[in-house]
């Protein structure tokens, strides 16, 4: 049992780190634009398909395919923002959330229409796991883990050092003050949506690499992404990472303790518990 627990922890940390990439996108959009973008699942699917096209049809290596997934999803995210969400901005966050949900359904079914329902696999050799005594870890898992860490590192550097990144943080911190200092809100919003959606697309591709690509690949993640963001504190960047890793581990460990059929409950229980006990989440500052 201790070995099984350790193995579940390893798998959970890897799964959580990959989950952190779209969770960061989700929470960044929430921080700057103040609404939960539920198109995030469908955007992750867009990224998975874009990466798949880049990898199989264009023969791109993984990193280039990942860049393509980021760019294609950034564009798709902007289209969702302009076509569906922005027209309802004045109606409040709830209407924007509903608009994003609807846009997500449209995106998902557009992909279904274009690519069909079949499962697609990346053009990668299936490799056996590396074994360390009782433990095992897949080379693909390790590669995805590294790519996810790299993506998060780049996001951190972007937010910390670039002018646009600083502007994004300023708007998230105090919108009015940022406007007074001459930050262009429309530009910051557009960059945030593009980066947030792009991260979702990268996350979708990373999950697709490990499993396979189909029109539901991103939708399957939505509950976990949302739970991770709520747990970490909506709008908190470090919170999204910590929340995602916690959710990843909890989902894996839960299977050891309970019937796997109840694995889905983890996300719901976490959301319920956080909203009841600490609505601000682990790292959330605003609500506290």
């Amino acid at each position: 049992m201790p070995e099984a627990l350790a193995q579940a922890l390893i798998n959970g940390v890897i799964a959580g780190t990959i989950l952190a990439v779209p969770a960061l996108g989700f929470t960044a959009i929430f921080a700057v634009l103040n609404y939960p973008n539920f198109a995030i699942g469908a955007l992750a699917t867009v990224g998975a398909y874009a990466g798949w096209v880049g990898n199989t049809a264009l023969g791109l290596p993984m990193v280039a395919a990942l860049a393509l997934a980021f760019s294609a999803t950034a564009v798709a995210g902007l289209v969702v923002q302009w076509a569906a969400v922005k027209p309802l901005e004045s109606a409040g966050a709830l209407m924007m959330a509903i608009a994003s949900l609807a846009a997500g359904l449209v995106l998902e079914n557009a992909l279904r229409f274009g690519f069909g329902n079949d499962l697609r696999g990346y053009d990668l050799p299936l490799l056996r796991d590396w074994r360390f005594g009782e433990f095992r870890v897949g080379p693909q898992q390790v590669q995805n883990f590294a790519l996810a860490l790299a993506a998060m590192g780049m996001l951190w550097a972007f937010l910390r050092y670039s002018r646009t990144g600083r502007a994004m943080r300023a708007v998230a911190d105090n919108r009015d003050l940022a406007l007074l200092r001459g930050v262009d809100p429309a530009r910051v919003a557009a960059v945030t949506v593009a980066v947030g959606a792009g991260l979702a697309g990268m996350g979708g591709m990373l999950v697709g690499l490990d499993t396979s690509v189909d029109p539901l690949v991103g939708t399957r993640l939505v509950l976990s992404i949302f739970a991770a963001a709520v747990l970490g504190g909506l709008g908190s960047i470090p919170g999204a990472v910590a929340g995602a890793i916690a959710i990843g581990v909890a989902e894996e460990v839960a299977v050891l303790a309970f019937n796997p059929a109840y694995r889905l409950v983890v996300g719901f229980v976490v959301i319920l518990a956080v909203l009841t006990l600490r609505p601000a989440g682990l790292f959330g500052a605003r609500a506290s």
Binding site: A4, E252, A261
Partner: peptide, 20 residues
Amino acid sequence: HVIYEPNQPSYRAELLRVLA
């Protein structure tokens, strides 16, 4: 005997439980 939920990105945990 493992009953698993549909629509999951990965079934590694369920599989390891059976293979164990």
